[in-house]
Computed example of a mutant assay.
Amino acid sequence: MQERTMTPEPLPFHPNPKKPDIALPQGACDAHCHVFGPAARFPFAPQRTYTPIDAPKEKLFALHRHLGLERSILVQASCHGTDNAAMLDAIAAGEGRYRGIAMVERDIDQSELERLHEGGVRGVRFNFVTHLGKPADLDAIREITAKIIPLGWHAVVHFDAHRLEGLAPFLRELQLPMVIDHMGRIDASAGPEQPAFQLLLDLMQDERFWVKVCGSERISRAGPPFEDAAIFGAILVEKFPDRVLWGTDWPHPNIKKHMPDDGALVDLLKIIAPRPELMQKLLVDNPTRLYWPETL
């Protein structure tokens, strides 16, 4: 049997992030982060394309306390495949302050979806990113989304920027809210007029679409403090203030260089959401509407 190609050894997450210079509003939410393992308890998927460093819930909870984040959305990553156990365990420990985005097989049944819902899951993620393996099957996405619509869930879509032109017509077919990861992974050095970013802006005209203005460390070409990327986040927040989310992306899987300081990423919010009302919507109001609507 041919072995699956693994990416190089990952960088460790930042051991001592700074205290942010800015104070976050009450109820602030990290809308994109992960838990990995510990592998001894929650093994990684055999078909994974990378093996991360253990990043357990205790480390994440401590980071959130340090940064001033009170709530969080845990996103299932490909290294755990469709075994959502580590994520569900962390959500349970969060005592209502955490929700989740799962990865599931196309043949998942309603009883399993209801179990995930009871465990705090509110959406499903689909990957179209080359380094994470084969792109999601479009027919499978149609089947899965039909099953999750009655639960009030949404889809999270993670894609390489060059794929958006081909994906956009398909995404418009789907009759549920969709959240785009990491500003569509555009290239910050190509400027706001680049076709990929203009396609993203066009897609966002449809009110079913949301976008996460995080991942500055991924799309930057200038390196720390990643202000070249934060400018794109600012454009999206200004244009679509009611359909934007932000997260740390801790523990930053597959970062090859410039492992970010999470406190410094929080400080980029001064650029991304420069006015208090924008910060309130980005960090509190929007994630509440999407993930905790029962509290409104």
Rank of each mutant, 00 (worst) to 15 (best):
F170S: 11
V211A: 05
C33G: 08
H34W: 01
P12T: 12
A93G: 02
M1T: 01
L201N: 10
D242V: 15
D187H: 02
P276F: 08
K212Q: 06
K239R: 14
Q175K: 11
V179R: 03
A234P: 00
H158G: 07
D89A: 14
E238C: 15
K18H: 04
K19I: 15
A90S: 04
A196V: 10
F36Y: 02
A77G: 04
A77M: 06
L296C: 05
K134T: 15
A77D: 06
A222P: 00
A168R: 05
F170W: 09
A45H: 01
A140G: 08
D160K: 11
I148E: 00
R99Q: 12
A93L: 13
I272M: 07
Y291K: 07
F240G: 06
P225K: 13
K19C: 12
L67F: 03
R4A: 10
E294N: 05
F240E: 08
W153I: 06
R185Y: 06
F159V: 12
R221F: 01
M103E: 03
A85W: 02
A62F: 09
E173R: 07
C214K: 06
V129L: 11
I144T: 10
T295D: 10
P253D: 09
R208H: 09
P287C: 10
V75T: 09
H131K: 13
A168Q: 06
G247V: 07
E143V: 09
E143D: 09
P17Q: 10
P195E: 13
I144P: 01
V156L: 07
E118Y: 09
T49N: 06
D242T: 13
G152I: 09
Q26P: 00
M183I: 08
E173M: 14
L236N: 03
I108G: 05
F36H: 06
R243P: 00
W210A: 13
F240Y: 05
V129Y: 01
G233N: 07
Q2D: 04
A229P: 00
V104Q: 01
Q198G: 11
W250I: 15
N127M: 15
H14V: 14
P56N: 11
Q47D: 07
N84D: 04
A196W: 01
G119A: 07
L69P: 00
A196N: 03
A273I: 11
V244P: 00
A146D: 07
I186L: 06
W153R: 03
M279E: 04
R41W: 02
I101A: 02
V237E: 08
K212V: 07
V157I: 12
T5K: 14
Q198H: 02
A62Y: 08
L63H: 05
